[in-house]
Design a protein around this nucleic acid. Sequence first.
DNA 1: CATCTCAACTCGTCATAACAAGCTGAGACC
DNA 2: GGTCTCAGCTTGTTATGACGAGTTGAGATG
Lengths: 255, 255
Amino acid sequence: MSSTELQTSRPEFADVPLYRQISKALRLRILDGDWPAGTRLPSESELGAQFDASRITVRQAIGALQQEGLIYTRQGSGSFVSRPKAFQNVSRLQGFAEQMGSHGHEVRNRLLSLAEVVADARVAARLGVAEGATVIEIRRLRLLDREPVSVELTWLQRDLGLQVARADLEGRDIFVILENDCGVPLGQAELALDAVAADTELASRLNVARGAPLLRVERLTHDHAGRPVDYEFLYFRGDTFQYRFKVDRDPSSAE
Amino acid sequence: MSSTELQTSRPEFADVPLYRQISKALRLRILDGDWPAGTRLPSESELGAQFDASRITVRQAIGALQQEGLIYTRQGSGSFVSRPKAFQNVSRLQGFAEQMGSHGHEVRNRLLSLAEVVADARVAARLGVAEGATVIEIRRLRLLDREPVSVELTWLQRDLGLQVARADLEGRDIFVILENDCGVPLGQAELALDAVAADTELASRLNVARGAPLLRVERLTHDHAGRPVDYEFLYFRGDTFQYRFKVDRDPSSAE
DNA sequence: CATCTCAACTCGTCATAACAAGCTGAGACC
DNA sequence: GGTCTCAGCTTGTTATGACGAGTTGAGATG
């Protein structure tokens, strides 16, 4: 009954699925530390009563949190808040500031250059434009707590790039700009990581010695429909940055 | 009808959940190429009729395939087989040889050392043993097509390590040994990647200059129950190796 | 012919209900 | 005290039913 009531009383959220509201509420309590690692969540029926939802709906919410790695579930026993943090959820596609900002660090970007350039073969291939077409190139230096961490080269299709160029590139992630200002929902990204030596320019930008090891990330981000949107090279200082994530073996458990 | 028939005729699989049977059946048709990319799957109700399952069960099966990236779904339209392959599923936990071997390369491991050592604080913490406990340390040089690519340091709990030590460490991945010879089903792994400079020993092993950039991968692999099993440091030559994978944005779409 | 409308189909969400399977702790039994 | 059993919890799986929202193509309309 009150699911309807809830929707009636908050018509502006009427279209947010109930299971999302639940998972969001639970997520907040976990991230805020109300429920430290190891805490047992209320049982599915209890949650159902609390949120006035059926068990099937609660399970949808819990399933989402499980996928995020925030909780784990043991049959017959209950659902529990996962181990520490620090390591959480990094196999999501997130901007650097999105990730760090949520951990209490100050992130700034210094715009090094913003230009229309001719796409070389590789950039053209990745972005799906003709070789020789004009694209937008953005070069930024990222500072974490005033300390330089990375230099980032970004290429975008011309029209999209011009929109992005008008946004607050110094304070916000390109991902956030793309999604909120340009209305481009992001989907998957392909990454390639390797290690390279700092050339003279990178070394001076990042305040390290020439030849110092850098973690290079090549990232091609697609929108929801699979169209390439954003092609980047990120150069991280090897001594101050780690790329962390989790992977599963055998996600399907097929055969 | 047929789901029941299936279970009746194969009583040993009677406890495999129906939704897994369905996702497995669909997965096979996709991987076998019966349904090329872009093919629309039968609707959820059709599948329900085919497998004699309710729609909720079919949706569970379809949800699993979606997570695997094999299919994508558009409301009002249907579920479709995903784009090519090539990049699929690389965010799985795979051994190096597993990955390369399936691409027609020759992978060999040269055993550099195999010893019982005293766990330092970090190794002890990661493997969940007492500091000062004895663990097995394995150091290997990996060769791809006769060329050195990486040096790998592995620590295992003593009893497990002794089992592994008896296996064919030169020809097989430790992952494969753990799963097949030791019967340890692997689950998740946590990875941390950064870039470091080659010290004298690594440089000579890998046949690069001292100070050359290396991609360092710290990996802690857990078994199915979440117990830490295998703790490793992998040092890859920056010039010959890339770590590639895909990530999704917004598995939760929070806030 | 172009466009517009709408019925019919698709997936998205949610409720209620039931039984199976795993876990846990209180109490019985030795 | 130590062990064993089992009731009563938990999650896992599944069915049926319902309505909403997005898509699409056929037919009506201009």
